[in-house]
Nucleic acid binder design. Structure first.
Lengths: 332, 332
DNA sequence: CCCAAAAACATTAACGATCATGTTAACGAT
DNA sequence: ATCGTTAACATGATCGTTAATGTTTTTGGG
């Protein structure tokens, strides 16, 4: 006839146990200031003893704030996103936020569903690296009037909140490093046309080459996905005397290095391959490569800062933060 | 005087628009069977047109099920966990679950907070790779009567639901591979004493060696964290004629390989290093190594299956699933 | 043609918390 | 002594949805 013994403790139980009302208990547990010191301490003690855990569903439904964020990224199999997610999670938890994770697998339809799911969950804000800027998910997001921040993505002329690194400067630094270490025929390789980042990085890359007096024909660029095509391109470059390669990112750089080594080439002797993101600042199980440090930890910190600002004041003007980069040399 | 135009559409709005009651709308949207076909279709159409998204807070509060799961793992910077998370997310979404992600940073206190947070969020179930089996988080979890599944963790004699791979068999296969490829002095190296997995893998490893007639003194084992100590141990082994190394996992194997190569050794010529987890089955940016495939995708699938079973029927006997492993050779 | 049963929808009461107001008593100032 | 103020708590409504029942209306069997 008794109640379920496994039923979680609710405010009502504490109210009954302490003789105060539910409201007073609620306020006491939130350290509101119109409860006397002793009552507050007493209620909190009893709550702790009874093993009370706040029901966020009820709390959020009433208050309108869930203290949850959603992160929507392509895939956690890419260490870049995984590391970013880890950093963001750590940052979010500092402010009492819990993080939903949704992977779009770089598929616009899945991404749209992810946004819908996040909206369904009444998240306070969304952190997203959209597949593209034509993504329907992004349109829905803009219509929904829910705070969101674009991670590592930036569209010229957009009014979305975003945080991204100085890609152009990064490309410039990358080229300058290659040039300073004696490479005079250099190229950039990217797998997927990640809008803007890729172009920006090449813009800076090219500029540094021109500034150093390298002629146009000695500045290579290719956007390829198929390993066979990539290998063919690499062979062509090497045959043409190219000896420096700037990869779009570290992950692609390692892929390229593995590809080269598996095909009898030697890195960096045949081709000096450098990357972007400086993932080695966070993990340490791969071959050391030179890279552009885009300070992911800062990006995570700022992303949370931006979303908090936006949640706090939806009328803020667009917040667009560019993170400065610097070059990390790991040459022998 | 009008209402907030950005206010999301709720059942009430649809009720008003269609002339039915809130309840009917709710039931129609859930395809319940005591609403006529036409009414159901009509309501769903209007709901879609009005851009209705279900409020999970209210829904969950009332129904008692949140359709959320929490995954608690050490860190997403470790690709092993990141990949597992990605796979689990994909699997979870198939069944309508949204995933909270919580990182414990392998710290028992943070882990405990993560569990409390998950409980606060009223998740339907928790997937966790606990720091240790003495973890207070695990105790809380057991007391809370909330469904949970241990990932890649198993404690002899425990009655927790869990899914893990056949570590002993994996170790056996690893050693057999080393032996078959001509290595007669072999060792296993592990960084952290991950309870059971590590011991089990060595048990199998050692057995395979003994079965092949390798004497005890030619079977090495070390559990070290400090890179300097690891390097010293590796040097000692190599000096003693050891030429085969079984790393606890792929990530550690790559770390070891990088360490060796940075110190003038050559892999696999000086030391053939193999790993565990077959992460290369999911990512492809690192040096190819031989590894034991523990079928992470199966683990993810089964984890979700187990948690769903447990949610559906809390009285089920403990479900403990061992995933068979096999060896993937990537020798040149 | 009556009654039982089913179909299709409505009504009411939760779920567990928080918000906006009430209420009471104590206190100091005038 | 009166009034206003504040401290400390209580009351009632509400968040948006779903579960448990009601209430009609229709249908079919004898």
């Amino acid at each position: 006839m008794g109640k379920d013994p496994n039923r979680p403790v609710i405010l009502q139980d504490i109210a009954k146990a302490t003789g105060y009302t539910i409201n007073t208990v609620s306020r006491a547990l939130k350290d509101k200031d119109d409860i006397s010191r002793e009552t507050c301490a007493y209620i909190q003690r009893v709550a702790r003893e009874m093993g009370y855990v706040r029901n966020y569903l009820a709390s959020s439904l009433r208050s309108g704030r869930t203290k949850t964020l959603a992160m929507i990224a392509g895939s956690m199999m890419n260490p870049f996103y995984a590391i970013l997610m880890d950093l963001i999670q750590r940052e979010a938890v500092q402010y009492g936020y819990t993080l939903f994770i949704l992977c779009s697998q770089d598929d616009p339809e899945t991404e749209l569903k992810a946004v819908q799911m996040a909206l369904s969950r009444q998240v306070d804000g969304i952190l997203i690296t959209p597949c593209s800027f034509e993504s329907p998910a992004l349109s829905l997001l803009r219509e929904s009037h829910i705070p969101f921040v674009l991670l590592s993505r930036f569209q010229e002329g957009s009014r979305d909140d975003c945080v991204y690194c100085n890609d152009e400067e990064g490309g410039y630094l990358a080229a300058r490093h290659l040039i300073e270490t004696g490479h005079r025929k250099v190229a950039m390789l990217t797998h997927r046309q990640v809008v803007f980042s890729s172009r920006k990085r090449f813009t800076g890359f090219r500029q540094a080459c021109l500034d150093a007096g390298i002629p146009e024909e000695d500045i290579g660029y290719a956007c390829l996905q198929d390993p066979d095509e990539i290998l063919a391109q690499l062979k062509a470059w090497i045959a043409a005397g190219f000896n420096g390669l700037f990869s779009f990112c570290d992950v692609e750089a390692w892929g390229t290095i593995t590809l080269l080594e598996n095909n009898g080439f030697r890195v960096p002797d045949d081709l000096h391959v450098i990357g972007f993101d400086n993932i080695l600042g966070y993990i340490n199980f791969t071959k050391p490569i030179c890279s552009v440090d885009c300070h992911l930890q800062d990006e995570a910190r700022i992303a949370i800062e931006l979303i908090r600002n936006r949640i706090h004041d939806p009328s803020l003007p667009p917040q667009q933060v560019v993170i400065p980069v610097d070059f990390v040399s790991r040459c022998r």
